[in-house]
């Protein structure tokens, strides 16, 4: 079930406090354990936009560090997303020998840089909509 479906139920006038609390906790745990596919792509693009190039493990560690461990990118989701973006021509790769092994770096292509701008805009719009639903009073101010 999508996050949006739960957030709609958060209006305190519609539901008793105990039910609301349960739902908030549920969303919290979902946000911690499950990363939504769309957001994952945006996160990867945003991180690569801020640095010249990154490798898979570095991306997982960077997200963990930035979110102080609140958000963890799972290995099983990261690589499929990177390979898909590479196949779509949004990322290009570079391989270097580091220590005693080969390391594959990803960097944005020109098409990828354009896509980053559009994905970030999309996510910001989504967050704005969520704010309206979660906290209607705040959005009116």
């Amino acid at each position: 079930m999508k996050l949006a479906h739960f957030v709609i139920f958060l209006d305190e006038n519609l539901l008793p406090n105990s039910f609301m609390h349960k739902n908030i906790m549920y969303i919290w745990s979902m946000a911690n354990s499950k990363l939504y596919k769309g957001s994952l792509v945006t996160i990867i693009l945003k991180l690569l936009n801020e640095s010249d190039k990154m490798y898979g493990y570095e991306i997982t560690q960077k997200v963990k560090e930035l979110t102080k461990g609140e958000l963890k990118i799972t290995e099983g989701a990261l690589y499929p997303a990177l390979h898909k973006l590479e196949a779509e021509g949004l990322l290009e790769v570079e391989v270097k020998k580091v220590d005693n092994r080969l390391r594959k770096y990803y960097k944005l292509t020109e098409k990828g840089s354009k896509e980053t701008v559009s994905k970030l805009h999309e996510l910001q719009e989504y967050i704005k909509t969520m704010q309206v639903l979660v906290n209607p009073k705040l959005s009116l101010e």
Binding site: T74, E75, G76, Y79, K84
Partner: peptide, 21 residues
Amino acid sequence: KFGIFGFMDVVSQRQKAMGKR
């Protein structure tokens, strides 16, 4: 950390992406 299916999902998704290429 790769989950109960290990590398299987990564492999199948990689095959899909390479097929696209």
